[in-house]
């Protein structure tokens, strides 16, 4: 990654597109502090989190959550979905009954019946698992959600349902999304603003319609040509 600078405003959906190896997932990992930047700053809600580590990051994770690419891989195979969803509140010491009630209502908001709390990851489909992952991300009432190719492992009909769910949740909860994706059509219909990455650099950013209909940089032109 090299000289990448952008911000996500409250309630905004920012799309990040680019080919494999362009650094999309690296951005997600940097923001959630799974890896350390060599230089630079990461601010969440005005707080510099670049130098935080260990326990100091726990309050940060109450504001920012992430949904991963592989649906089944993002839940511990030996624990129920409910365990995974409730983990953040369990770590905060919220009583069992209370956190399970919240998990149940969030699961229902995400379009899954409450009994999915008792299921294991291998017992549910990819789309159901991804809905559970969204519920898990919402458990601690974050302000920003990062989606790292969260819909790319799903088939198109399920993908459409998940996008509709995300739009609805975004309106209800006034969330900001950082939507990492390589599907330009999806970005065009779903995002408010888009950043195009190539080889670790931002080559273009702007409104999705502008970027996709009249791309300025060479790479963005090629990317658009390759698809349409």
């Amino acid at each position: 990654m090299d000289h990448v600078s952008f911000s996500v405003c409250p309630g905004e959906i920012l799309g990040v597109v680019g080919e494999s190896g362009s650094g999309k997932s690296t951005i997600a990992k940097l923001i959630t502090r799974q890896i350390d930047p060599t230089t630079g700053r990461i601010e969440i809600d005005g707080q510099d989190v670049t130098k935080l580590s260990g326990r100091a990051l726990i309050p940060v994770y109450a504001k920012i959550q992430m949904v991963f690419q592989s649906p089944a891989g993002s839940f511990d195979p030996r624990r129920t979905l409910g365990d995974g969803i409730c983990e953040s509140l369990r770590n905060k010491g919220v009583p069992k009954a209370e956190r399970e009630a919240k998990a149940r209502s969030l699961l229902e908001q995400c379009g899954l019946p409450g009994e999915f709390l008792e299921r294991y990851p291998h017992q549910v489909s990819g789309g159901q698992c991804q809905r559970a992952a969204i519920a898990r991300a919402l458990m601690c009432d974050p302000r920003v959600l990062i989606f790292d190719e969260a819909t790319s492992a799903l088939d198109v009909t399920v993908q459409k349902q998940i996008i509709e769910l995300l739009q609805q949740l975004q309106k209800e909860k006034k969330l900001a999304y950082l939507f990492i994706c390589h599907n330009l059509a999806l970005v065009q219909q779903f995002c408010d603003r888009v950043v195009v990455l190539y080889d670790g650099k931002i080559v273009e950013q702007g409104m999705p319609d502008e970027v996709i209909l009249c791309p300025q940089s060479d790479y963005a032109k090629r990317l658009v040509d390759a698809i349409f």
Binding site: Q34, E87, S88, A133, C140
Partner: peptide, 17 residues
């Protein structure tokens, strides 16, 4: 490096947990 461990970290789990 699996997603579920990253998810557990994002859930505010300490290393011991």
């Amino acid at each position: 490096n699996s997603s579920f461990v990253a998810a557990a970290r994002l859930s505010g789990s300490t290393s011991g947990q």
